[in-house]
Amino acid sequence: MTRDMDAEADAFVLGLMDEADESRSMADLSSDPDWARAVGRARDRFLPIDLMADAAPVPADLVQRVTARLSEAPSVAANLPGPPRMRRLLPAAAAIVALACGIGIGSRMSDPDPVVVAVLLDDGGVPRAIVEDYGSEHARIRFVSDIAVPDGRQMQVWTLPSQDMGPISLGLLETDRAERLSPPDLPTPAGGQLYEITLEPEGGSPTGRPTGPILAKGLAAVQDGV
């Protein structure tokens, strides 16, 4: 069966994909030019409906408010207008990261294997970190590229064991280096489970749920027999 890219692009642009398909489709934008063009066509098909919206007053200090925040998100990689050739390498980079991670685990004979591994990508599809969740209140995170954390903010790792439970904190990070996490007692992690890092106020989210921007996210792959 041939893939109907235009139909998928419509569903993506209308926000009607499920979360897993949407994350994958978002990541594919930087690696698959045919998909990116299909999404561009779909956006432009519906653009006139956006142009129909009445203009609303713009806060006088809008640009100042935005420029004051420009240092808060990972910007270096996203900001480089690198050649398209480099961008097409991104899925390969993600695969290499996953592979390296697998090899790393295999070589440490004394450690048990993680139940799931998730490669967390930023909005641009760039791999940022890897979470290995061993279940039974033990998980580990490693970073594969630098993330700038502004003063007064701290990274927090989350997972979504089920829609009913909602996002659960796996822990706060002191640095962007490898860290062990001690999550609460949760159901055994499953394939496709969402993991993400958000930027929260120092000391962690005040509400116990993610409140800040998502720095990177990814879905878990079960490590059975890998």
């Binding site: 935005v66 925040r69 420009l70 808060e72 998100a73 990972p74 910007s75 996203a78 900001n79 480089l80 207008p81 690198g82 909005d123 641009g124």
Partner: peptide
Amino acid sequence: VQIWHKSG
């Protein structure tokens, strides 16, 4: 903020 970071 995102447009700025992703503009490239």
